[in-house]
Design a protein around this nucleic acid. Structure first.
Length: 512
RNA sequence: GCCGCGUUGGUCAAGGGGUUAAGACGCAUCCCUUUCACGGAUGAAUCACGGGUUCGAUUCCCGUACGCGGUACCA
């Protein structure tokens, strides 16, 4: 490893919930940084005041804490290279913008939104639906290239709003060596004169990334593929401002797609699965978007599944802990093609992680899930037993409500439809006798209960198989769960008898 | 439209000039289980298309199609 310190940053914009692609971007950044023994920095990109959402920044930190990807430096933690919010760095950027203008790489533009709109209308054609502000039109716009010096001076001193735009050179090839995609080339004539500094004095992303990456000594800049088209702007800025030799290495991650195309950020409900890491409530609309956490996902599973959506280690292994990922991740095995998110597979990962986790480690989460449904468990030891009995049957943490609830609460309703048709007096009498037997049973354990059950059945010439299911439904409320007699042992004599009596009543009532 | 990135079963994917083209999810069938899962076994299902190069292309090259991204004083 080189002696050069690796610094990797992830820069979310606090405009709403943290979606799948965002989490994976953090993950890959984190994995690379940790693997190289470098630092992982979180910078907040809140340069767009109008889209800034209160609470979104705190939410991002909550999500990162949940999945265990905490940054080494951030606005929360502070550090040598702060401030970590772009809004607090505002003054830094203007000087660089002015420097670019002074050196002829950028210019001041005074065009109003109306004028820009008029220009786009004017040049708009069938073939060119969105004309750019580029070398072909800039000499006919109102900017410091077309206006004389006095006029520019006058406009600027009379508080006329203006922006700084990069002056894209004509017909140059800008190359980028992407760690995932290799050489990617752009012709500068086809890139527009992007705004670098907005009229409110805040930088755009383009100026901010390069200035911040330089000042924070970022060595590797990884982001989503949607940024690839603006890479030439950033490279040019590096060239003009700091020199290409200081530029970080780039990697553009593939996109995560929804069931039909792009995964849209705000409507997970539409897909029938979440898109955000955690519950997100839009402060404007009050609209709640459910997150993976609240759906019942384990953070390990969530991370695991995202990690292998676009990367694999080549061995066929699919279950990775975060530690293993740090060890095995490699940028050159990250795919270049986008991948569709598969909720079914996500659930499978969760199931695997529930099976993998020890009951003790599942306990706090299961307790929480149960208490939400008003199932209070007094003794941890009892819950531990139940978790071990049922965890192989749970896909999501929320499944514990159904799978474990009846151990602690009499089922609210029982579904006897599967046995009703075959129900008869002989069976009813059998259960009546069973109750008597269980009332008198000297010991209360699964094997003895089963033994007695079968003995009575044999004496009455009934098939135990036809009686097991009714018993299960009486105790559990449905056709699921571990061995019936184990359940009976767990819930105890009184409760078992009570549930059989209730079941008998229900079945009797149903026959009329 | 233009620019960029992509394209191996339904989905995630391994492979990378000669293979019976791995594996996983899902699906189906069976075994285990007097329930439901878990577990085990089996099965159906894939190299977008057209040209090259080559003795031989899923693999390399060029086109085409399709998908996605960008084309904002959003990131």
């Amino acid at each position: 490893m080189s002696d050069k310190k690796v610094r990797v940053r992830f820069a979310p914009s606090p405009t709403g919930g943290l979606h799948l692609g965002g989490v994976r971007t953090v993950l890959y950044n984190y994995l690379f940084a940790k693997q190289q023994g470098g630092e992982f920095i979180l910078r907040i990109e809140d340069t767009d005041q109008s889209r800034f959402v209160p609470g979104a920044e705190a939410y991002i930190y909550d999500c990162l804490r949940w999945v265990g990807l905490e940054p080494d430096e951030s606005a929360e933690k502070g550090g040598r290279y702060g401030p970590y919010r772009q809004s607090e760095r505002k003054e830094l950027y203007r000087n660089y913008a002015d420097q670019l203008v002074a050196e002829g790489h950028a210019y001041y533009a005074f065009d109003t939104p109306e004028e820009l709109d008029a220009m786009r209308q004017q040049y708009k054609t069938e073939e060119n639906p969105s004309p750019q502000y580029d070398h072909t039109v800039r000499m006919s716009m109102r900017n410091s290239l077309t206006l004389d010096g006095d006029k520019v001076h006058e406009l600027m001193h009379s508080n006329t709003p203006y922006v700084v735009r990069i002056k894209m050179p004509e017909n140059e090839t800008i190359g980028l060596n992407d760690m995932i995609r290799g050489e990617v080339n752009f012709n500068t004539s086809l890139v527009d004169d992007k705004v670098l500094l907005k009229s409110d004095g805040m930088p755009t992303y383009h100026l901010a990334v390069v200035v911040d990456d330089r000042l924070m000594e970022i060595t590797h800049a990884f982001r989503g593929e949607e940024w690839l088209p603006s890479a030439p702007v950033h490279i040019l800025l590096w060239k003009y401002l700091f020199g290409l030799d200081k530029m970080p290495q780039w990697a553009h991650f593939p996109l995560i797609l929804g069931p039909n195309g792009k995964l849209s950020k705000r409507d997970g409900a539409k897909y029938g699965f979440p898109v955000f890491a955690m519950n997100w409530t839009d402060p404007q609309t009050g609209e709640l978007t459910e997150g993976f956490k609240e759906q019942g996902f384990l953070p390990e599973a969530f991370i695991n599944q995202l990690a292998v959506l676009g990367w694999n280690d080549g061995t066929g292994q699919e279950i990775f802990s975060l530690e293993e990922l740090v060890q095995k991740f490699s940028m050159d095995r990250v795919h270049s093609a986008g991948a569709k998110f598969d909720y079914e597979k996500a659930k499978w990962f969760n199931q695997e992680w529930i099976k993998k986790r020890h009951a003790e480690d599942l306990l706090p989460e299961v307790k929480k899930v149960l208490s939400v449904k008003d199932i209070e468990v007094k003794e941890d030891a009892k819950l531990l037993t139940v978790i071990n009995l049922v965890k192989d049957r749970c896909t999501l943490l929320t499944d514990f409500v159904e799978q474990a609830g009846y151990f602690f609460q009499t089922p609210k309703q029982a579904d006897f439809s599967a046995v009703r048709a075959k129900w008869n007096d002989d069976k009813a009498l059998f259960f009546t006798e069973l109750i008597r037997n269980y009332q008198l049973a000297a010991v209360w354990n699964a094997t003895d209960l089963e033994h007695n059950f079968k003995e009575i059945a044999a004496a009455r010439q009934l098939k135990p198989g036809e009686l097991m299911l009714p018993l299960r439904i009486m105790l559990v409320g449905g056709k699921f769960g571990p061995g019936v007699f184990e359940i009976a042992e767990f819930i105890g004599r009184d409760e078992t008898i009570k549930r059989i009596q209730q079941g008998l009543q229900q079945l009797a009532a149903g026959e009329i």
